[in-house]
Design a protein around this nucleic acid. Structure first.
Lengths: 193, 193
DNA sequence: GTGATTTTTTGACCCAGGTCAAAAATCAGG
DNA sequence: CCTGATTTTTGACCTGGGTCAAAAAATCAC
């Protein structure tokens, strides 16, 4: 029997940042919809405004954009993470990012309208968003530092550490564009050990 | 006569994200302290936990860290921006960043305890923090893209555009470490026009 | 103003990693 | 289990920008 309602994982994720009242749990459960995707489905298209956010229960997604006709990975998202096109979802405007699945993926889907309702009626949801965004923000700071001052090999090693759960599940070309190095370079780096 | 209370600029900054009630304005005014720094003062030291956030009225600050004995600029902050050591301030833990002034700087200072009070009593402050963080987050996404796929010259041009108000007020060495390129390279780029 | 210190520029040299091309390996659909 | 498509590897070559060193210019302190 497959799960079709918010699971412990999702509630636990919230509770890393805020306590969840039963009222809020119920409101969340009423609004969050289980959704299953096959491998290779496009979850969000850059030509539309992003209205949904997905919390991954299991599987793997990629956020990417097109540059000179090539797909450039912005980041990968796996179990227990929210995925959306950040600026598009938060500001309800167009942005450059596409999102697709790299594996069959089960997730919980929250509509922006429902999220706004929750923000308006549960101040702790605002706090949750603020705090969880702080966590992601910190990762971005680290990534910028890593981009500036490391060799290609160090970038790859760092990637393997921070993405230890998924680095072997992702095609090499997607990793190289994520790291901002040539695919051939990454192939050579991987060969030499 | 110098200003010693929150000015319109600061309230206007808040009002870009949330409406300010008179009650909240008063609470803010009671907690925000005017502070003036000379050029070259260290505003925050990496060996301490960051407990203060500064809203710059005029002047210029630099957030940096030490790598192999050299100062690496994380970013510059100018008029109408909040400055603190983000992770240290938000999570009340140690982080690697120092902050100093590159010019005489006037700012408004808000203590983390007072901010927590405001968060606890004014849900709209949580919303403000969430939304304004979203703006900064977007800039970080752009910066990562810029780090990955641009030449040194493009990085510098992009810097001049996004930091148009301040790029000529900052020593070259601090810019080069911000961009992650050698100072000599930046000097040559600047020479060729 | 003047000497000391810091910052910027210039020159010479070199290598990490990019590009282009083609072979090898892997994958996916019938 | 074949076959065409995609992905990865390997080779040859080249260049952007790094490093080191020293001169020139700007800034500071007294």
């Amino acid at each position: 029997m497959s799960k079709t309602a918010p699971t412990d994982e999702l509630f636990l994720h919230f509770e890393k940042y805020i306590p969840l009242s039963n009222t809020l749990k119920k409101e969340l459960a009423d609004r969050i919809v289980f959704k299953s995707f096959k491998k290779g489905e496009i979850i969000h298209d850059a030509n539309t405004i992003c209205t949904k956010s997905y919390f991954i229960q299991n599987g793997l997604m990629r956020t990417y954009f097109i540059k000179d006709g090539k797909e450039i990975t912005e980041y990968f998202s796996a179990e227990n993470e929210w995925v959306n096109s950040p600026r598009s979802f938060m500001q309800q405007q167009l942005d450059i990012y596409y999102i697709d699945t790299l594996e069959p993926t089960d997730c919980f889907c929250l509509n922006v309208k429902d999220l706004v309702f929750l923000f308006d009626n549960f101040p702790e949801m605002e706090r949750y968003a603020r705090l969880s965004m702080g966590t992601v923000f910190g990762h971005y700071m680290d990534r910028i530092t890593s981009m500036r001052f490391t060799t290609a090999k160090e970038k790859y090693n760092h990637f393997c550490e921070t993405y230890s759960a998924i680095y072997h599940r992702v095609p090499l070309g997607m990793v190289s564009s994520y790291l901002g190095i040539a695919q051939e370079t990454l192939s050579r780096i991987r060969a030499e050990k």
